[in-house]
Write a protein that binds this DNA or RNA. Structure first.
Lengths: 192, 192
DNA sequence: TCAAAAATGTTGGATAAGCAACACAGGAGA
DNA sequence: TCTCCTGTGTTGCTTATCCAACATTTTTGA
């Protein structure tokens, strides 16, 4: 529901190709040097596209990062079949697992994740989480506004994942999540 | 000399990309099914380009095969530094080795190399050989026309490679070439 | 043998990508 | 300070690609 697969398919093939070239180049550069050291020129040279073409798709490199994170995160959620779903404790558990996993991998894949990079990623991911949780809650036909509980849960989940992915010696993921799950579930369960 | 590297670089980036997409798709299809079973649609679908775009580059799939073989063969010759060169017995030996190698690999990489495929490839490769040998002979400033000796040698070399690549149990390549070399060398040596 | 389906080439008009040039902003170094 | 250099956005114009539609052939299979 968050992703519209047909939208992507009915896009002009040239647009699809260009975006994909940009994303691939950007991903490679992220593993090589920090986000702050990547210039638009770097990306366009690596992607073998014209610089003007880049600006036809993204206002600047920050928008590209946002798009990159969104794509990667949503693809991950799709893979775990969480996007077209509803609330349940099991689904919530899978979701938290997925976010922890994603964030941990993001940090290990990207060279020197710096402050700027982190906070941009955080905003993007929390937005998607908020949308997803709102969707879940609306599915269960609650009469109350979903905004508050979705916000609380989105922040809580991201906080857990951030804590997990930054821990020096990461605890066993499953155990960590099982311990944290009830705290988030109690906030959502009463609305769903 | 046979290849003009700058020509490829000053090409429109979109053209380079499209050709490369077509070649990659075609190569993959060749390993999967025989040339005769590959349609233009197959290629354009795999390459994710419009069918009309294909026809803007190649008149039909036979022209594509020609281009494909030329590219691959010339790249192979470039790699062995035979293209910008002159005649000498050692160079001739390397050349024969390269052709045998190329043809043998071509036959093992492509699914069911059929009659049509073979004769098209043969024509393309012999043309390139002819150009290369002519260039070699002209380098040595001979006064006599290079056409006859270049033709004889091109056919002889291709014949050797064809024989080699079709033999049931292929003899040791080096030994095979060393045995054949003098026969070709005697035809070229007197003109260079 | 015949009709349906699939592949081939071609066309005109729409659109994305490329290019060269520009003004501008920041940083490095003399 | 001044200049040089590199990166940023933007623009008008050109060109390659896309698309939908069409008439033909070729293949299929009933």
């Amino acid at each position: 529901m968050l992703i519209n697969p047909s939208e992507n398919e009915r896009l002009d093939p040239r647009v699809r190709r260009t975006r994909s070239l940009i994303l691939t180049a950007f991903e490679a550069l992220l593993t090589e040097k920090g986000f702050e050291f990547i210039s638009v020129q770097d990306v366009t040279e690596r992607a073998q596209i014209n610089r003007a073409t880049f600006y036809a798709h993204f206002p600047d490199k920050y928008a590209l990062l946002d798009y990159f994170i969104s794509q990667a995160f949503m693809r991950e959620m799709e893979k775990r079949t969480l996007s077209a779903c509803h609330y349940s404790p099991e689904n919530l558990r899978s979701l938290i697992l997925a976010v922890c996993d994603f964030l941990a991998r993001l940090h290990s894949d990207c060279a020197q994740p710096h402050q700027q990079f982190e906070s941009l990623a955080e905003g993007t991911i929390k937005n998607i989480l908020f949308e997803l949780l709102s969707y879940w809650l609306k599915q269960s036909g609650t009469k109350i506004s979903t905004e508050i509980p979705a916000t609380v849960a989105a922040w809580a989940i991201y906080g857990l994942a951030s804590y997990y992915s930054h821990s020096k010696k990461r605890p066993a993921l499953e155990k960590f999540v099982d311990e944290a799950l009830p705290l988030v579930a109690v906030n959502l369960g009463q609305f769903a």
